[in-house]
Simulated scan of single mutants.
Amino acid sequence: MDKKNALRAGALVAGTTLMMLLMSSPASALTRDDGDDPGTGLSVIETLGLFVVAPLVLFGVIAGLVMVLDKSKEEHRVTSRNIRTKPTEAEAKAGSKA
């Protein structure tokens, strides 16, 4: 029953998207507006630098700053070194008293 509902939802979304695309008017990108003064276009290298390299560098800088300036305590970090499967003596005593 779930597959049938998913198929219906997918068909509805696809049909709606197709109808929106077919009924929408062109963007009129070739028609100039009054006062429109576009600059020169970007080269391929400039485009890749602006939309690919710059975000990756920005992400790397932010991630690096977060890792370097991390002030959390070692015992609060989840690592394979501090995962205990057996209770400590203090926990075992507290559990037996309760």
Rank of each mutant, 00 (worst) to 15 (best):
residue 1 M to H: 10
residue 6 A to S: 08
residue 8 R to V: 08
residue 9 A to L: 14
residue 10 G to I: 05
residue 11 A to V: 14
residue 11 A to K: 14
residue 16 T to K: 08
residue 16 T to Q: 07
residue 20 M to Q: 09
residue 20 M to C: 06
residue 21 L to E: 15
residue 25 S to H: 07
residue 28 S to F: 13
residue 28 S to I: 07
residue 28 S to C: 08
residue 28 S to D: 15
residue 28 S to A: 12
residue 30 L to V: 04
residue 32 R to N: 03
residue 32 R to D: 04
residue 33 D to P: 00
residue 35 G to T: 00
residue 35 G to R: 00
residue 36 D to Q: 12
residue 43 S to M: 00
residue 45 I to P: 00
residue 45 I to E: 14
residue 46 E to V: 02
residue 46 E to P: 00
residue 49 G to P: 00
residue 49 G to T: 00
residue 49 G to S: 01
residue 52 V to D: 05
residue 54 A to R: 09
residue 55 P to F: 06
residue 55 P to Q: 05
residue 57 V to G: 05
residue 57 V to L: 15
residue 57 V to Y: 05
residue 57 V to Q: 08
residue 58 L to V: 11
residue 60 G to H: 02
residue 60 G to Y: 03
residue 60 G to E: 06
residue 60 G to S: 07
residue 61 V to P: 02
residue 62 I to A: 08
residue 64 G to K: 03
residue 67 M to L: 10
residue 68 V to A: 05
residue 68 V to P: 01
residue 70 D to N: 12
residue 70 D to R: 06
residue 71 K to W: 12
residue 71 K to N: 12
residue 73 K to S: 12
residue 73 K to N: 13
residue 75 E to P: 03
residue 76 H to G: 04
residue 78 V to F: 05
residue 83 I to V: 15
residue 83 I to Y: 05
residue 84 R to F: 06
residue 85 T to F: 12
residue 87 P to T: 00
residue 92 A to K: 06
residue 93 K to A: 09
residue 93 K to H: 07
residue 93 K to C: 01
residue 94 A to C: 02
residue 94 A to T: 05
residue 95 G to V: 03
residue 95 G to D: 13
residue 96 S to H: 08
